[in-house]
Write a protein that binds this DNA or RNA. Sequence first.
DNA 1: CGATCATATCGTTACATCGCGATATGTAAA
DNA 2: TTTACATATCGCGATGTAACGATATGATCG
Lengths: 117, 117
Amino acid sequence: MAKSHATDPGNISPLEAVEGLKALAHPARLQIMDWLRDPHGEFSQWEPIADRDEVGVCVSHLQAKSGLAQSTVSSYMATLERAGLVRSTRIGKWIHYRRDEDVMSQLAEVLRGAQRP
Amino acid sequence: MAKSHATDPGNISPLEAVEGLKALAHPARLQIMDWLRDPHGEFSQWEPIADRDEVGVCVSHLQAKSGLAQSTVSSYMATLERAGLVRSTRIGKWIHYRRDEDVMSQLAEVLRGAQRP
DNA sequence: CGATCATATCGTTACATCGCGATATGTAAA
DNA sequence: TTTACATATCGCGATGTAACGATATGATCG
């Protein structure tokens, strides 16, 4: 009787979990997700475009800190967003990405073991 | 960059975390890890070789339940073991695999965000 | 409008993973 | 020792991912 809507707040489906894990199973993407836990602290050397605790960090700054090509960073963030791990907000020309802590917690629960029977 | 003690008991290194996430980022392997959370309940239709709550489940039974080829299951379990997510015990001719709950918890913590300061 | 800047998408080559059958290894029974 | 069985490893073609430069899109500013 438990129908799973894509936006079900309580639980993530096994397939969604796999997509999330694939997105995280990469050194640079995992590191970016770690940086996004504390955007204010991690990106203090770059002038913020907007409140980072609210909207996250723009691609330019992620690129600067990571040293990767712009297209690479953009593609990584698209991967993370498709997996539902981050959300994006455009502010002027800059697109900012922030963690979706809710989804990350659900993923963590899947690993620890709290799936529906 | 991170100083990595391979045998650090408290925390998993970012690179080890990536290996664990890669191993889990696959539908069949994630499902197997889920089954291994409750081997007694999940494999009740097969006669246990040994106490499943202690040593886990043998490859034959994983193969039977998954429907995959023997070589495929063996390779999956090798992947999970290399990543440190399961431990193996040989009993007679049967090799049993069980979850390493400690490592799984550490992985979950990495996702939620509790890395060493 | 045209120029500029931030980001996304495309096209490419290199490399990794998938899943299997075939075969090797290793253990135990006969 | 021979046989049988459980598991591991090998080799393969198919598919997917990595990372980049080039280029397209889309917003802003003059």
